[in-house]
Design a protein around this nucleic acid. Structure first.
Lengths: 155, 155
DNA sequence: ATGATATAGTTTCATATGTAACCAATATTG
DNA sequence: CAATATTGGTTACATATGAAACTATATCAT
């Protein structure tokens, strides 16, 4: 008489996609609260500021690539930042569809306020890990990211 | 003459909260597509099924704790699953507010179809890592999770 | 040049999500 | 055993989000 086959066990608590999601949310929420509470910025707006600070004159499309945001999200984040006076849209000379985005002095100002806070938050978070563990984590995440989406190279 | 102080650099691409978020999204999207495409389930519904399979008779509140979903999300996922005929709500004898949730035979059936697919997806994902790397990743994520939300113990 | 196709970005619309208000039942307190 | 507070869960409302349609410009193929 054949045994009844046991279904493979699946404990959510050890299922990587679940754990990743919960961890990511916990981390994001902590820092999102900082951006929002102190500066009225959404995570997406913060991301847009960060890449624009890094690459002044960047286009919305490029922002999307660097931040993994879709173009609608970029468009909205940009609109909000312009509204708040943190971002400026400059016409592109060579391509009239494109706009070149730059932080305003005000935008740069709060960006420079946020950076150390964000880095401090990150530092506090990873302080639970040794330096070696930190770099190992980064390395493993990198491998996983490639496995998860080989097509688009994220970093 | 004092140097102009350089703002601390922040490259989004190496900023842990960002990397985690992108990685988590990439992973989630892959498997979410599987649940949805093959079975018409949202991630939330899948999570509810998973914990209910593990603990038949579980309450909505307990589901929330185990899945890190808020009670509204649980309520909606449960309603959807009942609608689809995958979940059954049983009155609790001792507390009339609470309901005891169990998978229907149909629900159990598709659950048992999904589990191996989900595990296979996970396996494929982590196959980029050695066994040792896998357990190391799990360990590091655990430490990080505690650092990120010491209050609620996630696992 | 001219029509066809692709690209940058925005707007629209439908759906998902979170917060707060709410209802019902239980637990607590005086 | 009232009166009050708490808990389990749902509903309502306001906001966030994503897909698809759309506008404007640029590129490509003839």
């Amino acid at each position: 008489m054949p045994e009844k086959t046991q279904p493979a066990p699946l404990r959510l608590a050890t299922f990587l996609p679940f754990r990743l999601s919960v961890l990511s949310n916990a981390v994001s929420q902590r820092i999102a609260e900082l951006y929002d509470r102190e500066f009225g910025l959404s995570i997406w707006q913060w991301r847009v500021m960060a890449v624009t600070a890094d690459r002044p004159g960047i286009s919305a499309t490029e922002i999307g690539q660097r931040t993994q945001m879709d173009k609608v999200a970029v468009s909205r984040a940009v609109a909000g930042l312009i509204e708040m006076g943190y971002l400026e849209r400059r016409a592109s000379t060579d391509d009239a569809r494109r706009s070149n985005l730059v932080l305003t002095p005000a935008g740069l100002g709060i960006y420079e306020l946020i950076v150390p806070l964000a880095l401090a938050e990150e530092a506090q978070l990873v302080s639970a890990l040794s330096d070696k563990e930190q770099s190992e984590l980064a390395r493993l995440m990198g491998k996983l990211a490639i496995a998860a989406s080989p097509e688009r190279d994220l970093w």
